[in-house]
């Protein structure tokens, strides 16, 4: 596995994670704390889950 392959594959989960995190932070700052918690959970599930999945796919 080359470093380029690693970066290209990992860029999508990282971008989606940042996007979901920003949405969650916006909800939290709006005073919608329940929505913020849901958003943070979504960040972990989408960005984190996809990151771990792609990492395992690349390493194995």
């Amino acid at each position: 596995m080359s470093i380029v392959q690693f970066v290209v594959v990992m860029i999508v989960p990282v971008c989606v994670g940042i996007y979901a995190f920003n949405f969650s932070r916006w909800l939290w700052n709006q005073g919608n704390h329940l929505g913020g918690v849901g958003g943070y959970l979504m960040t972990v599930l989408s960005g984190g889950g996809a990151f771990v999945y792609f990492l395992f796919k690349l390493l194995i």
């Binding site: 919608n32 958003g39 599930l45 889950g49 996809a50």
Partner: peptide, 14 residues
């Protein structure tokens, strides 16, 4: 949440 559209892309990845 007041919006659902920002969730479409993360759920697409999931």
């Amino acid at each position: 949440m007041p919006l659902y559209r920002p969730l479409v892309v993360p759920f697409g990845l999931i």
